[in-house]
């Protein structure tokens, strides 16, 4: 087993463990903090695949901006509802069965479909750098890029409208 595989397995174990804690811990703040751990592990995965810019954006946008927003809303609302069963037990059982089946289908499609259709090894060993990403973003994908900026503007206006409450 090579060094890269060991690194992958350690980071993947942390990612899966903290994702499991996100959905099981009763305290929302703890969930948010373990979500940061999961997102950080995904950033490490991006880094190991040679996508340095995406790793940086992942940490800046997710851990920096989105999680701060989450924690703000959690502390703002302080949801202290009486501790009760989160869902009916039958619902949890069915959800687990659904998740296992989903995982099974994804697993089979990875093994049978995706990896059979793709070349065995990566096509080239020279990783594409930040310059290739920038060129693609501002030539091939310039229209989606502009649409994304409009989408962000709309989301910002929408958040302001939703957040200001009822106008007297």
């Amino acid at each position: 087993m090579s060094l890269s595989e060991v690194f992958f397995l350690i980071v993947a174990a942390i990612a899966i463990g903290s994702a499991t804690l996100v959905i099981t811990l009763p305290n929302t703040v703890h969930s948010a903090l373990f979500l940061v751990a999961t997102l950080f592990c995904v950033a490490l995965m991006f880094l190991s695949m040679g996508a340095e810019f995406l790793a940086a954006v992942q940490i800046l946008v997710y851990a920096g901006a989105i999680m701060i927003l989450f924690l703000f809303v959690i502390t703002l609302m302080n949801p202290q509802r009486p501790a009760g069963p989160d869902r009916l037990r039958s619902q949890v059982v069915w959800s687990c069965a659904f998740a296992v089946m989903l995982l099974l289908v994804l697993w089979i499609s990875i093994q049978e479909g995706a990896m059979a259709a793709l070349p065995i090894a990566p096509v080239s060993t020279t990783p594409l750098g930040l310059d290739a990403l920038g060129i693609a973003l501002f030539t091939t994908y310039v229209v989606p890029f502009e649409i994304t900026s409009i989408l962000l503007l709309v989301a910002m206006v929408g958040a302001v409208v939703l957040g200001r409450g009822r106008v007297q």
Partner: peptide
Amino acid sequence: IESAPTPYYLVLSAVLFSIGALGFCI
């Protein structure tokens, strides 16, 4: 360092997606 084979990443992606779907349901 050389990165791990592609199926590793795909399987991790599938597991994370399933955990997310499960959490959304429960």
